[in-house]
């Protein structure tokens, strides 16, 4: 402790005091902002939407929630105020956003994606929470089953329609034996998705090849590695990484003459032959329907989790012709199929 004896104690302590003062000043600033933020401004309900990162899934579901609120007759800035926050992929910021929501005490919190739900399970105890775009809420810790769950939470599961997808492969490409996909081992939802696809595929006598990919710059190599193993068709499962890079995957697969079936609606335009899509816009709207029940006085504990209510089938005849896939005549004119050019 030589340095402290060299100076007077008062002088040595000054830098600490200065920093502590700065600390106190920032904390005080937050308190002041709180005071102004919580003042009544004539708006009846306050909602918060918390998202983990920026992806097509988060954009679609956010728009779905906003449109859903309009469709249940609420007017923005008059009946409700929705403040959206996005952690931009940073987990420590995500925690702070949940703290901010707890401090703010809104009437209801919307959340999208699995990491956000996990953090909310820990942080939010007494504000109603409605989640969406979560593949498996049970795995994320939101409850023991779809009916028996945390008392302040309910929401929408967007697990893909893998059974449906396998059925479509069988219908359109009856000779297919091997299906392939890229997946992201670092995303819990991705691993869950390939396991589900594998389950239904094996049940139908199909073999699944899954090639791992870790970052967006590896997508090209991973796709080439997958196509070199000659699957009959690529059924690309959903995760944040591959859904942002699906254009690349489809382009390379096309060069290698392997058709792609997808689970996200924008893939049909990019050249996928068929897309069996959980509608993420609808997932947002469905979350609002559950929120409506809570606003009407029902307890979230009594509202079971639900699967997203609408599954879209999109068909791209141009892509089908390119791969010389002859579509069964029975498909034409079916109202549940959207043709994409």
């Amino acid at each position: 402790m030589k340095f402290s004896s060299a100076k007077s104690t008062k002088k040595a302590a000054w830098p600490f005091i200065r920093v502590l003062l700065i600390l106190a000043a920032i904390a005080a600033a937050i308190l002041v902002i709180n005071k102004f933020a919580n003042q009544p401004n004539g708006i009846k309900k306050r909602f918060v939407l918390i998202q983990f990162n920026d992806s097509p899934l988060s954009d679609l579901s956010r728009q779905g929630i906003i449109d859903g609120l309009t469709s249940i007759g609420l007017v923005s800035k008059k009946d409700y105020e929705l403040s959206v926050s996005n952690a931009q992929g940073d987990i420590t910021t995500l925690n702070l956003m949940l703290d901010a929501a707890v401090t703010d005490r809104p009437d209801l919190v919307f959340i999208t994606s699995t990491p956000t739900l996990q953090a909310a399970v820990k942080k939010i105890r007494d504000i109603p929470v409605v989640f969406t775009v979560v593949a498996d809420p049970i795995l994320a810790g939101a409850g023991a089953s779809f009916e028996k769950h945390l008392t302040n939470m309910t929401g929408i599961s967007t697990l893909g329609d893998y059974n449906g997808m396998v059925g479509w492969v069988k219908t359109i490409m009856p000779k297919a034996r091997v299906i392939g996909t890229l997946y992201t081992p670092s995303e819990a939802n991705s691993v869950k998705n390939i396991n589900e696809l594998k389950k239904y595929a094996e049940h139908a006598g199909l073999t699944l090849i899954a090639v791992p990919v870790f970052s967006s710059q590896e997508i090209t190599d991973a796709t080439l590695s997958l196509t070199s193993r000659k699957p009959d068709v690529i059924c690309q499962v959903i995760d944040n990484l591959t859904s942002s890079s699906s254009g690349t995957i489809i382009k390379i697969a096309r060069e290698q003459k392997i058709p792609v079936f997808g689970f996200v609606s924008d893939q049909a335009k990019k050249g996928a032959v068929l897309v069996v899509s959980r509608d993420y816009h609808q997932a947002g709207a469905d979350a609002v329907k559950l929120a409506k029940k809570i606003l009407d006085g029902e307890s979230p504990s009594k509202i079971p989790f639900e699967f997203v209510s609408r599954t879209e089938i999109l068909l791209n005849p141009e892509a089908a012709a390119f791969f010389k896939i002859s579509l069964p005549a029975s498909l034409s004119g079916r109202s549940d199929i959207t043709i994409v050019k």
Binding site: V19, I26, A27, I30, A37, S83, L96, M97
Partner: peptide
Amino acid sequence: IFRLLVAVALRLG
């Protein structure tokens, strides 16, 4: 202090 600054940014909406 860094965390508190992020908190201020969040709280400003």
